[in-house]
Design a binder for these strands. Structure first.
Lengths: 345, 345
DNA sequence: CTGAAAGCGCTAACAG
DNA sequence: CTGTTAGCGCTTTCAG
């Protein structure tokens, strides 16, 4: 493994000159640069990452912190991760996937931060009240969130625009003629834990429905097909005349579809289903394919990393706060309501 | 940020003593250790990862190399990744997610290897003839594959036991009374590219069916729901009396289900479906839930990392070669064939 | 435009 | 059982 010394010797220049042609931190004459480059090529030189990191105090490594408990990552979260990794790689950074304990392990976080392995950190699965944010800030680690806390003052984040997403989905269904729309959310425990997407969509649903002069009916569901079946059963009991379901639960929506079909209700003829914050791949799996609000997926991860790197490399203390819309993609699970009830149309 | 110097000064010992209580590389007396530990605690000391890496020539960072093109990671691959990350974290390593160009970018790989950022590397999505393996070996990077090449001499790998998986799935269907079993594989292009799982299961299917005295009928499918629909249509044309489908294509299987239902064929009463190398979460999404050969998922990633770390920390040149079985999990998509054809039983 | 040299914070001989 | 010290390979002043 050739070192910078070797290159310098071969090119007959000093090590600092080699360093400067590499970093471009000061002007180098054409001739010198050429000599150095030739020597590097000849020796197949690659700078040592650790040495560079130690001397420059920048590891060029980013951490992607995500709680890994439960049932692994969903398609949407996976897209965040791959998007972030690709973006980091594109700008010459490395991305460490760092599974951190779901909640209590703040000390572990602080320890991680103090090791100075990460120049900055992207935090996923942020709760509305998330102590990790404070811990990280206190440790002085540049930080970008995917998702956001309740109070976002002074924070950088990228998140989905849940308000817009719900508004658009509801408007679409209402435009089709639906009036009895039931919203299936995550479980009560998830809500209670302060899971932002669940909370924000819930509030947005109330606002949107009320705005249309309609009653917002909401049912929680466990994150499973069985949870979806149960939720649909509950929904029909509560609102027998429902003609549309708005699902904020990528997993439960499959159970909803199954239960609907099992009860002899056709999708979309009897009941329309819109799945929110869903990846196209997942939407395509269902029969019929799901009309969905497509999550920005890898774009979120990419933007988070780009904002972080800009902050590290660049000017200064720019906060980056951005909400990305979900796009309505109409597939086979929605239609105008059949006038089953004479009073319904 | 306190350094080791600070700790040494406060504890009134030399830096090397501090280093040795940290690494345990040589015995330290109770009293001294206690003093050092106290000083570390008081200063909230954390060793600097870059400095440690440079001096010890071990970064404690592992690379997870995966080609990221196409449509992101499936559930099974995601499980590999999360399993690997969790395992690395558990043994004090970091795991970098490194998206490398699908095929031709061997130079990029070599460059990566020469930067000495990774102590070792886990390579995913290995083809039967994969030049990356040779390049990495030549670069002297300790290497474990998830999947395997055609010639595995001298390599460490963890892979799914496709032969066993197919054998067991076929035996299960034959045991139920099925005789006309069609195997739906990945696309012809995927086969042609040397994708191991597709090739190995294909061969295993021929062997298994022939062993039962049955004819092995195989149909390729694009990796999409539409691909599955088309494949099923082709299968029925070719084998009108088919009573079971063995699907080696997590995505296409949803299309198969949809097309079956669309043609008025009930699952499992008219046609049984077994999905191979599938995650439970995905199997549960289908209606009916899929009987599947469940992929070892995160275990593969975990074992790969553990083998790699054992090689790095440990004794020496132990190759680790291991095949993991998929477990048959019976759900709602399989049953004994209805005797539609008098000659069928 | 280029060189010399002082570290970055730690590990691992070597010496006791 | 502990201390001294020479690096690891690079970046970045400080000098010219």
């Amino acid at each position: 493994m050739a070192t910078m010394q070797d290159v310098a010797r071969l090119a007959q220049v000093s090590v600092s000159t080699v360093s400067y042609v590499l970093t471009g931190a000061r002007p180098i004459s054409q001739g010198t640069r050429a000599k150095v480059l030739a020597a590097m090529a000849q020796l197949d030189y690659q700078p040592n990452a650790m040495a560079r990191g130690l001397a420059s105090r920048r590891s060029r490594i980013l951490g992607l912190l995500l709680p890994m408990d439960e049932r692994g990552l969903g398609a949407t979260e996976t897209a965040f991760v791959t998007g972030a990794a690709a973006a980091a790689s594109a700008v010459g950074y490395h991305l460490v996937l760092s599974p951190v304990g779901g909640g209590g392990d703040l000390d572990g976080l602080r320890r991680l931060a103090s090791q100075r392995m990460f120049d900055g950190v992207v935090l996923m699965e942020v709760q509305l009240a998330d102590e990790r944010v404070g811990a990280l800030q206190q440790a002085g680690v540049p930080l970008v969130l995917i998702g956001r806390t309740g109070d976002t003052a002074g924070l950088s984040y990228v998140d989905i625009d849940f308000e817009q997403t719900v508004r658009e989905a509801v408007a679409y269904l209402v435009g089709l003629g639906h009036r009895q729309i039931v919203y299936v959310n995550h479980s009560a425990e998830t809500l209670a834990s302060g899971y932002g997407p669940a909370l924000r969509t819930r509030d947005a649903f109330v606002t949107a429905m009320t705005g249309h002069g309609l009653e917002p009916v909401m049912i929680p569901a466990q994150d499973s097909a069985a949870g979806g079946r149960a939720a649909l059963a509950a929904a029909i009991t509560r609102t027998p005349g429902l003609t549309a379901v708005l699902a904020m639960n990528e997993t439960a929506v499959f159970g909803i579809l199954g239960e609907l079909t099992g009860r002899g209700l056709a999708v979309p003829d009897d009941v329309s289903v819109v799945s929110m914050v869903t990846s196209p791949q997942v939407a395509e799996l269902a029969t019929p394919a799901l009309t969905a609000m497509t999550s920005p997926g890898s774009a979120l991860g990419r933007i988070a990393v780009e904002a972080l790197v800009r902050h590290l490399d660049g000017a200064g203390d720019e906060r980056h706060q951005q909400l990305l819309p979900c796009a309505l993609e109409i597939r086979g699970s929605t239609a105008a309501p059949r006038s089953r009830h004479p009073d319904g149309g």
